[in-house]
Amino acid sequence: MLRCIVLTATASVAALVAAVPAAGASPLPLPLPVPVAVPLPLLSSPADDQLTVTVSDTARTDGMYELECGPTGGDHPSAQAACDRLDEFAREGQDPFAPVPQDQMCTQQMGGSETAHITGTWRGRDVDATFNRTNGCEISRWQSMQPVLPNTRS
């Protein structure tokens, strides 16, 4: 994202320099650049990431796991991969802990009785999110959080 901003700024300066009239020519006023709103990446570092992941009814990965990112730590069974996945969400500007919108159309399928609860801090903000596999949207949400949440299917 930062590279894109720098390249855009460089191209804008080059275009303005090329548009400046030669010495002695009658100068015309140049239009001022219009500011464009550019979303900035979250400024907090992964060092702020401290999450507690509690998983239930999975038949093989139940438990409470601590996950720390930047540096990677805790007793999460896939800590480095989980931190890498959370970094992907941050780079893409996504909130992995956002619930499924209430007006979202979801397939009515049961993916299992598994539940998960994640609390803590991610990118400088508090997290308190629940996950389940009660419909197609929730199943997809769970799967997108792997390996932060365990793969409950063989």
Rank of each mutant, 00 (worst) to 15 (best):
E92M: 07
E92T: 01
R123L: 08
V20F: 07
E88L: 14
P27C: 05
M105G: 10
E114K: 03
H117R: 14
I139G: 04
V100A: 08
S45T: 15
D75I: 14
P77S: 11
L42M: 13
R123P: 04
T72W: 00
P101C: 03
P71C: 07
D48Y: 10
V17Q: 08
A9S: 00
T134G: 10
P21C: 10
C83H: 04
P99F: 11
R141A: 05
T10H: 09
F97W: 06
V53Q: 02
V6P: 09
D49G: 00
T10I: 00
A82V: 10
S44A: 12
T61M: 08
S26R: 15
A9L: 09
T119I: 13
P33S: 00
V100G: 02
S144D: 15
G112M: 03
I118P: 01
S113I: 04
D95A: 03
L30I: 14
T58W: 06
Y65L: 11
R141Y: 05
P150Q: 06
I118N: 01
S26F: 10
V55Y: 01
S78H: 14
L51G: 02
R133K: 11
E114A: 15
E66P: 05
S45L: 12
D84E: 14
A15C: 06
H117V: 12
L86P: 04
C83S: 01
V17F: 07
G63Q: 10
S26K: 15
P29H: 12
D49K: 00
S44C: 00
G93S: 11
L2N: 14
L40C: 01
T10E: 09
D128I: 03
L7R: 12
S45H: 05
P21W: 09
Q146P: 02
F97S: 02
D95N: 15
G111R: 02
V6I: 14
S44H: 08
Y65D: 09
R133G: 01
